[in-house]
Structures are given as C-alpha cells and as structure tokens.
Amino acid sequence: MDSGEQGRFGTDVYAGRLRAATAAAADAGLAGLVITPGYDLRYLVGSRAQTFERLTALVLPADGEPTVVVPRMELASLKDSAVVELGVAVRDWVDGDDPYRLVADALGGGRVATAVTDAMPALHLLPLADVFGVVPVLATDVLRRLRMIKDAAEIDALRKAGAAIDRVHARVPEFLIPGRTEADVAADIAEAIVAEGHSEVAFIIVGSGPNGADPHHECSDRALQVGDVVVVDIGGPYEPGYNSDSTRTYSIGEPDEDVAARYGVLQRAQRAAVAAVRPGVTAEQVDAAARDVLAAEGLAEVFVHRTGHGIGLSVHEEPYIVAGNDLPLEEGMAFSIEPGIYFPGQWGARIEDIVVVTADGAQSVNDRPHELVVVPV
C-alpha cells in the first residue's frame, strides 16, 4: 500500500512543502512558523492530529530544522503522517512540562517574531505570546500562496474527487421522485457520495421549488412536486482529503418557458466565467465575466453571492472569485465557478464546476452536462 492509499501523498511531496514554507517564513522576516492541528498541518506533513487542551505543534524555524512538539500520550497521532519518514525531530512532553517553552526553544529562544496558523486556539496562542514576549502574527499570508498553487499530486486528487461527484450527479435523477422529501433525497445522495469513493459527506443541498431560492438551504421535509426546479449542491473529501463540490439544477417535468429562458442566461454566464480564466486575469475579472452576462439580461439583482471559491483540503479556501479581489490568477490555482440566480418564494438555479488554471486557460474537473436536467414524470 502506498502513501496515497494511506490517506496522504508520498514523503517527497511533504519535504518540498516544508522547504517552501521555511523559505516563505524567512522571506517574510519571521523567526519561524508554529502550526497546530488543522488544514495547514495536514498540508505540510499529512497529519490529521486534532486540537486538544494539550499543545501539539509543528515548529518550523526559518533557520534550522523542524520539530514537532507533542504530548507523549498523543504520539500515536503522528503515526499516519509523514513526520517519521521526513526525519522531523519529535519533542514529546508530559503533564507538568511547559510545551510553550519547548516551542520557543525550537525557535532559538528569546523574543521572536513568529507566525501561527489561523486555526490555533486562543488557549495556546496566549501562552505562546507570553513565552515569546510578542504576539505572533497569522501565518495565512506566508502559507496562502503555497496552498493556492496546487501541485501535480493535488490536481490529480481534485480530478478524482470531481469524477466521483460527477458519478453521484449522474444518479440524482433517480432520487427525484414526486412525493419524496428533500431529506429523503439527501439521504440517498449521502449514501451515493460514499459509495462513489468519498471518505465522507461534507455537505448536501437539496433545494426544491421555493427552497432553491436560498443558496445555503440544506434539506427539509418539503415533498417534491411536479414542476419543481431543484438545486443539488454536493461534495465531500476524497482521499487523501481533497474535496469535490459540484452543483447541478434539475426540473421535475418540463420547465415553463420563463424558467428555461432564465436558466439559459445562467448557462451563458457560467461559460463566460470559465472562458475568462487564464493566468494574469484577476479573480474579480472572472467574477465580472459571469455577472455582466446576467446584468445584461436584467438578472444582476438575483445573483447574490460571489462567483467562486478556492478548494483543496478545505471546501472553501483562497482564492475567492469575488468583486474587489485583484489577485492575478496563476497556473495551478483551483476554484469553483458557480453563478446562481434566485427568485425568493419561487425557485433558484446554480451551475458549479471546479476548474484548475492551466498555462492558457482553465480545465474543469467536472464533466456533467450544464443543461437543466429534466426528470421525466
């Protein structure tokens, strides 16, 4: 069984990430990084350790070797990570020891300018600040570019996740039977998400009829009816933990002319945003590409959210495809393109693919049709 089958990448992937993170910390003028359990720790060493009242932290000095500070009773939490294979020093501690002093020592001691992951709880941040003699800054700016630019292994994982969620959407029409509730449909989808290879379900939205006009509706006991437009937004992690996220919209029976016409505009908006993606274009320009198509048809006011969000180990991460974000896109970035239209009390629709920025455009990891899927009745 290789490392990927164990829920992580090969050791060389993590070795490269540690080098890049250390260099980024040095470039930022920091003494180092302190990374507690969360997506950043998982990104850097493949660890799925959890945060408890006892401190676990990866310490990355800008000039020196990395160390993991971990409670002795939690040493087993490192066994599925790449820490041992990487040769990272492990400083275990027991109740009565001062783990924060161990962190400071690993950074060279004294008053140090340090960055911490944004997932660090205050119960660890404040004692660290006391030991350092200065409040740490967030490591978000140091790590953001590393996590935004997906490497080949990450892109492969996103493609596998996308193919798996496509297989689920291919089955959705069989679940959309008039008289069944949204919750009934969601239960079937949850089973299918795992059956098609995901390790778990991250979220399921089944928004039928007027519930489809709520972008973050989940599911309810509303019974499906003939004539309903149904928004189905689903996703979950696929080993080694990279997420799928795809939305398709369904019509139970043939839609009326108004629904069909407005949905056609939404299709054009989604295509325009995907077509706008390429290195050097800003995130806000991609958002505008979708928004301008809808605005030209009088639908600007019913598109009430951003066009997309980055995705990877977390379902929502940078870059965000939204007005005001002048970040230039780079090859390897991965994010959703998901314009939607919402008519309160009536219906809603959304089309979502995950795309990866290529050298000259974008490649989608999803390939299900974008048309309004008509479910025969």
Results as ranks from 00 to 15, higher is better:
A183Q: 07
S47F: 02
Q50A: 15
E65G: 01
G332R: 01
Q270F: 06
K160G: 15
E182W: 05
G10K: 07
G87N: 07
P328N: 10
A28S: 11
R144H: 02
G7T: 06
G162Y: 14
Q6L: 15
Y14E: 12
T114A: 13
A122C: 00
D92A: 14
K160V: 04
P376E: 15
A24F: 01
V315Y: 04
Y43V: 04
T36P: 11
L146E: 03
R171L: 14
I165S: 09
F132W: 12
V365F: 05
G64W: 08
G96T: 02
L372C: 09
A276Y: 04
E318A: 15
R368S: 01
V194E: 09
V69W: 05
L327I: 00
L18R: 04
A260R: 14
Y250M: 07
L18K: 05
D40E: 11
D80V: 00
K150G: 01
P215Q: 08
G235A: 12
L313M: 11
F52R: 15
I204K: 08
A139Y: 09
D40K: 01
A170P: 00
V168M: 10
P215S: 06
L299A: 15
T140S: 11
P121I: 08
A57M: 13
G87L: 11
E74W: 07
Y320M: 00
A273N: 02
T282P: 03
I149Q: 06
A192L: 04
R42P: 00
E74S: 15
K150H: 11
V88M: 01
P339E: 11
W93C: 08
V322I: 14
G227I: 05
V116K: 02
L102N: 01
L60T: 04
V232H: 02
A223R: 10
Y238L: 11
G324H: 04
G253P: 07
V90F: 08
A273L: 04
I354D: 00
R54Y: 14
V83P: 00
E154H: 11
F52L: 11
Q285P: 00
P210K: 03
G348L: 10
R144D: 13
H316N: 13
G253N: 06
H309P: 00
D105R: 12
G87M: 10
Y14F: 15
D353Y: 14
D214P: 00
Q346H: 05
Y43I: 06
V206F: 07
P66S: 11
A272S: 09
A349N: 01
A164Y: 14
A295V: 07
